[in-house]
């Protein structure tokens, strides 16, 4: 329960960071805000002789909009993103989701990239980004590649990152008119127990796009294909369609039992939160606002 000694490296470019990580091998780890990593090291769950601190890599700190795409550097903190006027005006659902992540101290230091790379199964941002169809940009200086956030995490604390590779940024499509985004979650301890994010688009009174991600109950966030059952439905069908979709979502997701609850309870929560979240997203889409609340 005490932080063991380690050596800190402070590169200023993605190239240098990547080279250091490659050279130092398994005894090195990249650190962004450190809110998750240092805690794990204190608890003895992880141990590294070298920590490559990415906070001075300027290239990871960009935040920009190009067309309908929001690009967030891997080193942007939750708090910077949450309070960015750009994000608040163009993507209020993202801002409000982040406002309920952990606490102010953690959000002020923790980063979006760090959260995804740590790959804790209980994550609001990972669920949210998966539902948005966001893209993770991975790089090592010389080369880069793009993978969907949905497949970025492959298990608890495991990602597709190759040795020496960094998550340099995340790209999200901004919600346009007729888009409704909701993020609902429930937590019994510090980390969320269940997270459900819905993104729907309504045009001409019918659903034209629907996507749903369920997180924190399995080892990785799951994008189910159940939301497609809402396509083409009009308001008068929503009650019934959403009920069926939510039940199907609970069937499709296989929760892991842990201190937050047994499988049966978590499945029931997935159904409830999916139903409430979809209704909220549909209402928002029909009203064409972009925001969504957080409580179940």
């Amino acid at each position: 329960m005490k932080l063991p000694p380690f050596e800190v490296h402070r590169p200023t470019s993605v190239e240098d960071a990547s080279r250091l990580l490659t050279e130092l091998g398994d005894d090195a780890v990249a650190m962004s805000g450190g809110t998750e990593l240092l805690l794990a090291m204190k608890l003895g769950l992880a141990s590294y002789g070298h920590v490559v601190d990415l906070k001075r890599v300027g290239a990871l700190r960009s935040l920009e909009v190009s067309g309908d795409v929001l690009s967030v550097g891997g080193g942007v903190t939750h708090r910077e993103l949450e309070t960015s006027p750009l994000v608040r005006s163009l993507f209020p659902a993202l801002s409000s989701m982040l406002a309920d992540v952990a606490n102010l101290r953690v959000r002020s230091v923790g980063t979006l990239g760090g959260n995804l790379c740590f790959a804790d199964p209980h994550s609001d941002p990972a669920t949210f980004l998966a539902a948005m169809g966001a893209v993770a940009v991975l790089g090592s200086g010389a080369s880069s590649r793009r993978v969907p956030v949905e497949g970025f995490s492959v298990g608890p604390y495991e990602t597709v990152l190759a040795p020496g590779e960094l998550l340099t940024g995340v790209e999200l499509r901004l919600p346009g008119p007729g888009t409704g985004v909701s993020h609902v979650r429930m937590k019994t301890h510090e980390r969320p127990t269940v997270t459900v994010t819905s993104r729907v688009e309504v045009a001409g009174g019918v659903v034209t796009s629907a996507r749903l991600a369920v997180g924190s109950v399995c080892s990785v966030p799951v994008v189910t294909d159940t939301a497609s059952s809402l396509l083409g439905s009009a308001r008068e069908d929503w009650e019934e369609r959403v009920a069926r979709c939510s039940a199907a979502t609970a069937e499709a997701v296989e929760p892991v039992a842990d201190a937050d609850g047994a499988v049966g309870y978590k499945s029931a929560l997935v159904e409830v939160l999916a139903r409430r979240g979809l209704h909220r997203a549909l209402e928002l889409a029909a009203g064409s606002a972009g925001a969504g609340g957080v409580a179940p």
């Binding site: 805690l39 608890l43 019994t188 301890h189 510090e190 980390r191 201190a259």
Partner: peptide, 21 residues
């Protein structure tokens, strides 16, 4: 909320604020 959980071997399972609410 509050509940200290010991396993059958007597180990306290939730000794941080992450798990002890």
């Amino acid at each position: 909320f509050e509940e200290m959980r010991f396993d059958a071997s007597g180990t306290l399972l939730n000794d941080t604020l992450l798990d002890y609410r």
